[in-house]
Design a protein around this nucleic acid. Structure first.
Lengths: 242, 242
DNA sequence: TCAATTTCTTATCAATTGATAAACAGAAAC
DNA sequence: GTTTCTGTTTATCAATTGATAAGAAATTGA
């Protein structure tokens, strides 16, 4: 714990290589703290100490409390900053654009998705807050399920000329097939940034392969599921999880 | 934080419903501490405090230090206890038993695998220690890759009468296909115990569906990969990641 | 029954850590 | 140039937390 370096250059100083201004406008300093807090908490978790965060910022620890009344307020702000405006509504349009082959839509979507959220900060903060039991995670996963996965499975059905979800609701297991694809891709990020285990550099190539495997293999499974469902009773057996 | 209950029944007392012996043989008390430490740290992470752990055990806090010199020693012991002897060598035999269809082997394997490690404690301790950067995680993932995933891809090739890995080493992307299946299944556990998000109760059914999708879709992708590889140069392009 | 042994508790330390208050200092206003 | 405003630091508190030491209480052996 004993740290040799006493005067540490702040991030800004290191990057711009110009002497850092001591007094900053309120908004600027606040933004500085939030940004550094994101990388700091992503690295060490939310138990990370305000003194160490201050040291990284090149400021004193009480100054943090001038901008955020409590540590929890700062953490809350970190959530806001990390999660907001990473969602792209275009993803949803793309997935249901039937002028393109499904395989291509999936491939394009996941490449874009990964570009948006595959960062050290996003992934680790997401897992840390998940372990903490923060609600924001569940809300995000519900978004993924309702806006992305259900759309994917709708398109898988459409490609096979199977009934729409309005006609025959999704079964739990059907949605889980989409979670399989999604989880398989997200697991790359987990291996890389949570376990720090080697992963392929060529994420786009990996996505293409995984999507191809999904697009090849899943439709037949879905078809079979629906045959079993309707064979038994002539109607739907299970309702989707809403 | 203020906790109303002052005298709490210990785990043992609750389970056996007989008054607990105050003084226990050294080995018994040690085992008690380790077991409770596992569920405690799984729940709150390794920053969890020894006082709270002692409270759950119905003992005083210094007693923990009678059995484990430091908190880190206790944590180390928790790793040992959680990870050891959950690996079943039979899994490896099963995967290469060509008297069974590959789809069935995969299905049986993942059902058994999931039965062994899909517990609240295992999954959360694994993720917590991953975030902490503990080496044991990387060793475990290397085991998965070398003993399980490479075997799976060997069998996928064999089923297609493609060259063996000895003849044509695995490409990175090929192994990533197996990580896709593995990650898709493990992601169920992450959703359930890290994010506490709803998952299907019927894990075996989900595994069957995901394995079916993999077994349907992946072989063609592998075949295509290998054609591209050999088409270009008449020989192997990439070496496997060892 | 008494002494020796071992388990367990009480009391306490020292370092850590979130948070506060008062003083300091740079910059704008007059 | 002096005053005023506010961004920043210094000094410090109180609660928390891993760890220790000494003694009480239970168990064993004779």
């Amino acid at each position: 714990m004993a740290n040799g370096e006493k005067t540490v250059k702040s991030k800004v100083e290191k990057v711009t290589n110009t002497p850092v201004r001591k007094r900053l406008p309120r908004h600027e300093r606040e933004q500085m703290i939030v940004q550094e807090a994101i990388s700091f908490f992503a690295e060490v978790g939310f138990e990370g100490q305000t003194r160490e965060l201050a040291r990284r910022l090149g400021i004193t620890q009480p100054l943090i409390f001038r901008y955020f009344p409590t540590k929890d307020d700062l953490i809350e702000r970190v959530y806001q900053e990390v999660y907001i405006s990473r969602w792209n509504p275009w993803w949803e349009e793309l997935l249901e654009d039937r002028s393109l082959p499904l395989k291509e839509r999936l491939s394009t979507f996941y490449k874009a998705y990964v570009k948006a959220i595959f960062t050290y900060e996003w992934v680790r903060i997401f897992v840390y807050s998940g372990l903490k039991g923060v609600n924001i995670n569940r809300r995000y996963l519900a978004l993924i399920r309702d806006r992305i996965l259900k759309r994917i499975m709708t398109e898988v059905r459409a490609e096979q000329n199977l009934p729409t979800p309005a006609e025959v609701p999704f079964s739990e297991r059907e949605i889980e097939l989409a979670w399989g694809l999604h989880g398989g891709i997200f697991y790359i990020a987990i291996r890389r940034w949570i376990y720090e285990f080697e992963t392929s550099e060529d994420i786009e190539g990996v996505i293409e392969a995984q999507v191809a495997s999904f697009a090849n293999g899943t439709p037949a499974v879905v078809r079979q599921m629906m045959e079993v469902q309707t064979d038994k009773t002539g109607a739907t057996l299970e309702a989707t999880t809403t």
